[in-house]
Design a protein around this nucleic acid. Structure first.
Lengths: 365, 365
DNA sequence: TTGAAAGCGTTACCAT
DNA sequence: ATGGTAACGCTTTCAA
């Protein structure tokens, strides 16, 4: 690999001049030309490592998510990515894979690599809740934010994080409230919430929103119910089965997120139970799959792309240096009810579906 | 940010000793203890950049894919990720977003960041085909492989890449052949292949496989047909409409990949055309969505996770230093026919579905 | 086992 | 506008 000295020598100028040329500082035109040629000849690429050593700037930011294979995070990442690319940052993505250890590991790696900013979607798994583990994770992040030159933004509804970092989130309570109310308004009384562990702030808020709606409709007998469990499709599938066994009177289920709702929906489909006539299904998030399954899944949409984009903007605000806001700022983005086939009104005959635009570009390799 | 000198000073030893301690070399026990304490106190993290400057080793490898939001690549990445993590490498993922410019940009970034290895799923879009653009992309990669200390592996069926780099791929011709034969065997004669541009090696091979099967069945009148187009769901949706208009006699369509097939399937669903009774639908790849939609999509599965994992192994073989194989090695992985509801045999009544295990863990935040 | 000092490739400062 | 040179934080000789 050629270095800046090789280029300088070949161009017959000093390294300082080459350095200036690289960074776009004024250089005499004839020199510029020779240097450009030398760079091309030698296939020279400035080492970010060496540069960072002196400037503290790498032009790289990182994002850590629990699971890239999850459509929700993919969209968040795309928004983040687009925002930062517009500011000439490169973005690298790392996976925490649902493992607290790996989360701290990859964060550490990114920091040591010299990322200027770090966007984190923290784990909210059973292993990482409330407890000491989470507090120490937060302390570590705080040290990174304070001591290092690494800005931090967290995408979460989790309070401890919101108190310490710039965060972006949605109002999960409201989302679940709207979802439940929609089910009630369309004639379902026996609504059951599915999945998630209430120890997680995000889950608790959603369950709260559900309870609130039920109580408002005078259905307090239901208001305390909840089938807790994992937050993936398999969990939704199993929970749906259990609910049907234990509460055959149920006329609607509300997945704590789309994955759970999709699992429930799949169970119903597999057992030839009419959706939404016998059981209506509703999710929260609006991941890409919700628009692919038939019947399409009703849900309360989180603006995933915007969440990522906003996280990027917060990061840039801190990275830019200049006028930093002092307190941690918490950006709350609005959700939106999406009524689809899985909760269509009961008496009404099924109208000709007007397909939504398909999303998510396809594999092209 | 504390550096190694701060630690040395606080521990009252030399930087050399600290350095040895960090790297696990023998240090007198009492010293080890003081150093450990100092590191903890100062929250010291060795700078990868500084280390890389002298060792040329960053412990980081990168992967570049066209689109993270695509389930196919997510799975490939997971396999790659798992393989490298087992060898204590950190993995960073970058998105080329379908844009040739951005592809070269992110590759460049990764290299300059000092990744020791680079796994690439190259663009195969219209913009990046056969032409000069592709050749120059390949040349760039070759220089990286040669001059730098960066190993390269490419995941592709594209010949020019296979000649120059370690590659991992599947036999797309065979896959399409198997898919088509399955359709023919189950009583469909009028099979139409959908999507993709034949200029892409991968697409051409798949179309070839289709042709071969049609010819073997004496259906050469169909053997030359192909509805070319994009490789995403929208394209599949539109192409399905077009086929139905121009060839209402069609009894089956073969998407050049699952996304196209899914688009076709959605069109049929939206227009209340019976699947598979009126039109059977088949894809190639087996992305996660294929198991979610109803009817479930029949397809020929690419071992996505294994593809990524194998790419990781090839990279490690080059990175490890020692005994490098000399020629470019091309690992060809087997595909597998997955018969699902979208192609069930015609006369047969619909059996009780035995659900496959659900896959892809869910959002847990 | 330890410490001193010479790099690694780049930028930034200071003369010129 | 240019060139010389001291950092930057780490590893790696080489002596002790």
């Amino acid at each position: 690999m050629a270095n800046i000295y090789d280029v300088a020598q070949r161009a017959d100028v000093s390294v300082a001049t080459v350095s200036r040329y690289i960074r776009g500082q004024p250089v005499r035109p004839d020199n510029a030309e020779v240097i450009a040629q030398a760079i091309a000849d030698l296939d020279y690429r400035p080492s970010i490592a060496a540069r960072a050593l002196v400037t503290k700037r790498t032009g790289v930011v990182g994002m850590v998510v629990p699971n890239i294979a999850n459509a929700f995070y993919s969209e968040v990442f795309r928004g983040f990515h687009d925002c930062l690319l517009a500011d000439n940052y490169q973005v690298i993505l790392a996976n925490s894979d649902g493992l607290p250890n790996q989360e701290t590991q990859v964060i550490d790696s990114l920091v040591r690599l010299g990322v200027e900013g770090l966007a984190l979607v923290p784990l909210a798994s059973e292993a990482a809740l409330g407890s000491e583990a989470q507090r120490s994770a937060i302390r570590r992040l705080q040290r990174i934010q304070t001591s290092g030159s690494t800005a931090v933004v967290v995408i979460t509804e989790c309070l401890p994080y919101q108190e310490a970092f710039d965060t972006v989130s949605v109002d999960g309570r409201e989302a679940a409230y709207v979802a439940t109310r929609h089910l009630l308004r369309t004639g379902r009384e026996h609504v059951m919430p599915l999945g998630g562990h209430p120890e997680a702030d995000a889950v608790r808020r959603r369950i709260d929103g559900y309870h609130q709606a039920m109580i408002e409709y005078g259905l307090s007998s239901y208001s305390l119910r909840h089938y807790p469990g994992g937050m993936d499709r398999e969990s939704g599938y199993r929970l749906m089965e259990k609910v049907l066994r234990e509460h055959p009177e149920v006329t609607a289920v509300l997945g704590v997120n789309d994955q759970v709702a999709l699992g429930a929906l799949m169970f119903l489909e597999d057992h030839a139970i009419q959706i939404p006539e016998q059981v209506a299904v509703m999710g929260i998030d609006d991941v890409a799959e919700a628009r692919i399954v038939r019947p399409r899944l009703s849900t309360v949409a989180q603006p995933q792309y915007e969440i990522g984009y906003e996280a990027g903007r917060l990061l840039l605000a801190r990275t830019g240096g200049e006028e930093e806001p002092d307190g941690p700022i918490c950006r709350m983005l609005p959700t939106r009810l999406k009524v689809r086939e899985s909760t269509w009104e009961l008496p009404q005959s099924v109208p000709e579906p007007k397909p939504e635009p398909l999303s998510s570009p396809g594999r092209d390799g």
